[in-house]
Amino acid sequence: MATLKDIAALTQVSTSTISRVINQDPTLSISQSKRNEILRAVQKLEYVSPKQRKAQKEHSEKHDESGNHHISSAPLELVVVNFLDPVGEINDPYFTSIRVGIENCCFHNKISVRTLRRDQIAKSGHIISRPKAVIAVGHFTEEEVLLMYHYNRNLIFIDSNPLGRHSDAVLFDRYAAAKELVGYIIDSGSKYPAFIGNDEARLHVFRELTKQHQLYRDDHCVISKEFCIESGYQAMLKILGSNQCPDVVFAATDIIAVGVYRAIYEKDLNIPGDIKVVGMNDISTSAHMNPGLSTMRLYPMEMGETAVELFLELVNGRKVKKMIHLGYDFIRRDSF
């Protein structure tokens, strides 16, 4: 079992400083890079603090070898850490659906749920370390990931996998889904494809494939910081201001596509006659847009349910980590 001295030998930092970092001492003056180095060493050596050992002992004493509760009246506890605040989640149906999937599955399995925001991680070690496992929804900084892992070794990430084999994860293959969608665009005979979205797999795939086919134009590729209607609208206006009108737009999410539609119609252009549009997610309104939006259907509610099922497996004694990829399906409608 690793000790503070082992971490000190790896990081060349005193054990007292390491202890203060682990316990989130607010009076400690230390650079963020050194703090992260210590937390990475904690992860690498799988150091377990006395507080964590006590919490693990208390948890194991509540269960027999078959995973049954000795105290049947005590409900299972689950902590969910969300990278979005409530307003951000409301504006993104994908993550709203993940939350609904988690809550529905917890309700049916009589699991008590407590939700934290990312800005509460540092001060919530006593909460995060209490349950058998923690579900982390979305995309977190390295420091946030290392802190959560320090507090609880059983993390279940949804839509990301920053710890690789050291945690459970529920994902869809962003790269493969984007590759299939961009393939449809290229096969359609598009000469001037455009992309609107974040700097992540979908963008990288779009650039890679359109460059291979000599179709890439830098002014037809707009990176937006947020997945929202307004960002899609503003990005599409920018693209329409270039010297060449695109013939197909790949909106990284259906919410962005709503803004794309608005910008196209404001310029008295037609979908799909002048510009075709494809999205990703298949939110409930996609089929009712005018015209109906062609999109890659994802399964966020099922992702939330799957994460809770992984939690129950950990409660019942599973040791090996799991990474689960859910499928996706292209839904062809009149916009493409």
Rank of each mutant, 00 (worst) to 15 (best):
K123P: 03
A55V: 03
R117I: 07
I98S: 10
V248A: 00
D64M: 08
N154M: 07
G88P: 13
K179N: 11
L146E: 13
I185N: 08
G189A: 00
V81G: 01
V113M: 07
K34I: 10
D173V: 00
R318W: 01
G241Y: 05
V21R: 04
V278P: 04
C245W: 07
V278D: 03
N82E: 04
F227L: 11
V258E: 02
N290P: 15
V137E: 13
S29V: 15
A169V: 05
Y47D: 01
M236L: 01
P75E: 01
A235L: 12
T27Q: 07
C106A: 15
T17A: 12
G259A: 07
N198F: 14
G88H: 04
A41S: 00
E37R: 12
T11M: 02
I283D: 06
D159A: 08
S124T: 02
A2G: 14
Y175V: 08
P272V: 06
M303I: 11
I98N: 02
K225P: 12
K319C: 02
L4T: 03
D254C: 00
V308F: 02
P272W: 01
T96L: 11
K225M: 12
V42F: 08
V260R: 09
V182A: 10
R333G: 03
M323D: 11
Q24G: 15
N154D: 12
H63A: 05
L78T: 05
F107E: 15
S66C: 13
F311W: 00
R114E: 14
K191S: 11
T3V: 09
D199M: 10
Y299R: 10
P93T: 10
D247M: 07
L293E: 00
D85I: 09
F195N: 02
Y94R: 05
K62F: 03
E89A: 07
G259R: 04
N104Q: 13
K322M: 11
L163P: 01
A251Y: 01
V100I: 13
T27D: 13
S19K: 00
V258T: 09
S19R: 06
S129R: 03
C105P: 12
C245T: 12
I30H: 07
I90Q: 14
D159M: 06
V258N: 06
N91M: 13
A8M: 13
F172W: 05
G259I: 04
V42Q: 06
T295N: 00
S73G: 12
M148F: 10
L4H: 03
M236T: 08
L209M: 07
C105R: 15
E230I: 14
V21Y: 03
D159T: 06
K211P: 10
I71K: 15
H139L: 13
M323G: 10
G88N: 02
N270E: 15
G273H: 03
A194H: 12
L4Y: 01
F206K: 04
Y299I: 11
I30W: 01
Y94M: 02
E89V: 05
P246M: 02
I156T: 02
R333M: 00
S129V: 05
S160Q: 05
V278T: 04
A177T: 14
S97Y: 08
Y94G: 12
I38C: 10
H59E: 09
S160E: 09
L237H: 12
V277E: 05
K123C: 13
L45R: 00
V248T: 03
N109L: 01
F206N: 00
M323H: 15
D92V: 09
